[in-house]
Design a protein around this nucleic acid. Sequence first.
RNA 1: GCCGAUUUAGCUCAGCUGGUAGAGCAUCUGAUUUGUAAUCAGAGGGUCGUUGGUUCGAAUCCGACAAUCGGCACCA
Length: 635
Amino acid sequence: MQIEFPDGRVQQIEAGVTGSDIAKGISPSLEKKAVAISLNGELKDLNVPLTAGGKFRIITKDDPEGVEILRHDTAHVLAETIKELYPDAQITIGPVIENGFFYDIYRDKPFTTDDFEGIEQRMREIVDRNEPIQREEWDRDEAIKYFESIGEKFKAEIIRDIPAGQVISLYRQGKFLDLCRGPHLPSTGRLGKAFKLMKLAGAYWRGDSKNPMLQRIYGTAWATEEQLKQHLHMLEEAEKRDHRKLGREMDLFHMQDEAPGSVFWHPKGWTIYRELQNYIRRRISKVGYVEVNTPIMVDRILWEASGHWEKFHENMFISETEDKLFALKPMNCPCHVQIFRQGIKSYRDLPLRMAEFGCCHRNEPSGALHGLMRVRSFVQDDAHIFCQEDDITSETKAFCDLLMSVYKDFGFTDVRIKFSDRPEKRAGTDATWDKAEGALMEAVKASGLEYTLNPGEGAFYGPKLEFVLRDAIGRDWQCGTLQVDFVLPERLDANYIGSDGEKHRPVMLHRAILGSIERFFGILIENYAGKLPLWLAPTQVVIATVVDSANEYAKIICDQLKEAELRVGMDLRNEKISYKVRDLSVQKIPYIAVVGAKEAEEQTISLRQLGSQEQTVMTLKDFVAMMKANAAPPA
RNA sequence: GCCGAUUUAGCUCAGCUGGUAGAGCAUCUGAUUUGUAAUCAGAGGGUCGUUGGUUCGAAUCCGACAAUCGGCACCA
């Protein structure tokens, strides 16, 4: 039989030869770096005798698949360590995740992060022991019996659930035997020591909140110490940009115990917030949206009619007054239908694009709250497009164009789309869902954008597109959405008169670009690390004086900048200029205009931009013109 | 909501095995009039998250509650 290498070279091999043998044949150093092989796209252990030929590749620690195997092995070594140090613990599953792995463990006594040092120590010992890792294929019943005999009930349960006919493979290293699909390294010594335990958290068995709570140990693992160091450094950087920290440091907003999940916006934060809102206002009004505003508190009757009460009433804030039960609106759509229903609508009025920056409240579970990213009181850049079925494609395409253009203005160009179809619990008939999913699918195809399927994740009233953007440090955030809804217009009895003179149901497209403005604000702060583009910066420029005698001149400059509608401040404090420059830089002020006796004399300023040491001297007139031009928001 | 951790001055954090609190930065006052990332000196500031309990005595030990943090579950 023969194998073919990625470069096209073909080699004859005999049956029974292992990947390890082949690697050694190429070079001993390659064999040392190898972690597994890929045969016809399938990953296999290095030491498994080959029984067939085909497309062959040696996987090393440098390959993405190689690092995954290494992480998986690290999880196994963690499990082995846990069984050695805490024999009463039961192990469950330990998969690879981004940058590392975790292992879920059942044990009565909680672990603490103080245990990490001892665990890591023992893990390193197991690496030093260089235990061979061997694959074994077991009979299902034997495997169940074995794991039950050693008290590993969770493992036994997993094996029971493996579909019949599938091979039950176990991997043995030292005295430790774990259920695993593989592949694995040939021995624990190959792992290296570029790993670290990171976090401890609770996690439900099989992800179901009705099941027992397990303890999850998170770890990170890399091919080299250098990569581990880099990763830890990246985490530090992410921590530095945390919007909760920057929000406090930059005096943008705060939250307090008396209003958990709600934001107290400070003047600077609110300036940014309003800029964002007004930017969206300009963008949507240009493409045919109208803006409305609807009540925050609405009778439960409307929520029952829309279907929200049944599904979400536990997460709604309610208020009883006289004999009525009101709910704070968790979303705007039912209110928009009420506006649509006023008067008689003609097909000539469609598509009607109705936008609202409505304040919505959702009683999110306490454990879900997270800074600005998950709040209980928020505003979306929400809109509903009432249209005819034939309009879905063109409206979807127009929306995708708008959304991409908006994201681009914030510097987000890496955007992915997820197509989420019918969930298990849903409103509307299957025929309606067929129609809605078909129409949305056709629309997204027509938009020419790439998408991935996200089965079962649609809203209860319709399928949706979800727009995921990638930020400056590579994190993904789901922000925009577009949902096709045939259900709500029906339930809330919206209709229009068609060209045939008959009544028809409009289709509703629910859509948002930024999503929650609170959350998008947080994403922006972290994306820019607080260094906002000029048009968003709450203070765009500060005039800093070198001596008191320049104060009058500073005030003249300040007035002129205000006249040009710039957000300007003055630093007339009795401090050295280097102190002011440091202080204003720490505050992330985009521009500092320094003026002393010389500038006052010559009617100039000395300009310094955030992040640069350079000083540019320019005339006052040029300076004001330049600032005005640069501070203009995107169209 | 569930698991674990945390909560001390505006911020960041000390405070060992119980004897009623401390630093740096910030703030205020004074001196200094200064040329591009921290001038010097002094002062003020805390019911130690809230609330019960143990104790002669609690920031410290125990309980309840709240909020926050890390996850899980949830996310119209």
